[in-house]
């Protein structure tokens, strides 16, 4: 822990492994870092596969670095539900920063559901925050549930889309349209980028979330960095608008959500421990598993006083 605060990359890497593998690992770590949290600004980068997020991330890192900021990067890739394995390939596109001491890149696999991604990612963000990064960039594929996760994890969410014939509009219909603070049309040298920007603005205007203020829609090219300076400027502008108060407000909500998540995880873990060792509970559980009893009734029967009895005084 001390070595983390001294800036040892190896210590940071090992701690990340610890929290990734075993959330209980954070129990020992958190009290020591809690009061140091909150310096890093966390940017989420999400969008459909093939939108060029990693290349864009690499350009964003470059821009942030040239302004002297230190950047931590978390690149998330999906775990195969069948084998438990994962191919973590985003790093390849961030090669320019491999030897930069002001950049730390960590790949993470989603490793199953139950807030797994969100929890471990949040903890890794905290570790990077304490390590002294000014920005933490979280890159994830935005399909299905993960995009909500990312919105609840980062301070600001950048949604990355790409003009792909009619598919661009298709992407707009997916759950991505409500979570962005900034929208980016990457690979903007492709035909249809401008018209997609217009369409996108139309879609966003109809969304109640943006009734008071429209999110910026920007054009970028991850391959050569065109539009990236403007994107980073927009991020900074949002950062400034959020200010300390709004940011704190957002983070308060997030901490609440985070607590609920950890609670869920702890309850389930505890239950697994109990059900694994107690023969009677195992038998009861088998009734649910076999389908002879519905789960709601079973819950009431096993926990007549509720699942948790908190210490309140």
């Amino acid at each position: 822990m001390g070595r983390l605060l001294e800036g040892s990359e190896i210590a940071l890497a090992k701690l990340i492994t610890l929290v990734e593998n075993n959330p209980a690992g954070m129990t020992g770590v958190m009290p020591m870092i809690q009061h140091r949290l909150g310096k890093a600004f966390c940017i989420g980068l999400t969008g459909p596969p093939g939108a060029g997020k990693s290349s864009l991330a690499s350009q964003v890192i470059k821009a942030l670095r040239s302004a002297g900021a230190k950047v931590g990067v978390i690149a998330v890739d999906p775990t195969s539900p069948f084998t438990g394995g994962a191919l973590l390939g985003d790093r390849v596109r961030m090669q320019d920063h491999y030897l930069d001491p002001g950049v730390f890149i960590r790949s993470m696999a989603t490793r199953g559901s139950l807030g797994g991604l969100a929890r471990a990612t949040k903890d890794v963000i905290k570790l990077m925050d304490v390590f002294g990064f000014d920005y933490v960039l979280v890159e994830t594929v935005g399909v299905g549930q993960t995009e909500l996760d990312i919105m609840q994890t980062t301070d600001i969410t950048v949604v990355v889309l790409v003009p792909e014939g009619g598919d661009g509009v298709q992407a707009m219909k997916a759950g991505l349209m409500e979570i962005g603070d900034i929208f980016v049309i990457n690979k903007s040298d492709r035909p249809g980028a401008d018209s997609m920007a217009v369409q996108l603005q139309g879609v966003l205007q109809m969304n109640p979330r943006y009734a008071s203020a429209m999110p910026p829609v920007m054009l970028t090219q991850g391959t050569d960095g065109k539009g990236v300076a403007e994107l980073v400027e927009a991020v900074r502008a949002r950062q400034a608008i959020l200010g300390d108060t709004d940011l704190e407000e957002r983070r308060r909500e997030k901490r609440n959500l985070e607590f609920e998540e950890i609670l869920k995880w702890a309850v389930v873990e505890e239950w697994k421990g109990l059900a694994g060792s107690d023969e009677k509970l195992k038998d009861r559980l088998s009734e649910v598993v076999e389908g002879s009893k519905d789960p709601y009734t079973m819950l009431r029967e096993i926990f007549p006083y509720g699942c948790i009895r908190p210490l309140t005084d």
């Binding site: 973590l88 390939g89 790093r91 030897l99 890149i105 960590r106 790949s107």
Partner: peptide, 24 residues
């Protein structure tokens, strides 16, 4: 069932070790 990071081509020993450190 392993988590695999692929480095890409033309890696120097220094880059490989740096990646190994950060990715633990």
């Amino acid at each position: 069932g392993m988590e695999v990071i692929y480095s890409g081509l033309r890696q120097t020993p220094e880059k490989i070790v740096q990646t190994a450190i950060q990715e633990d």
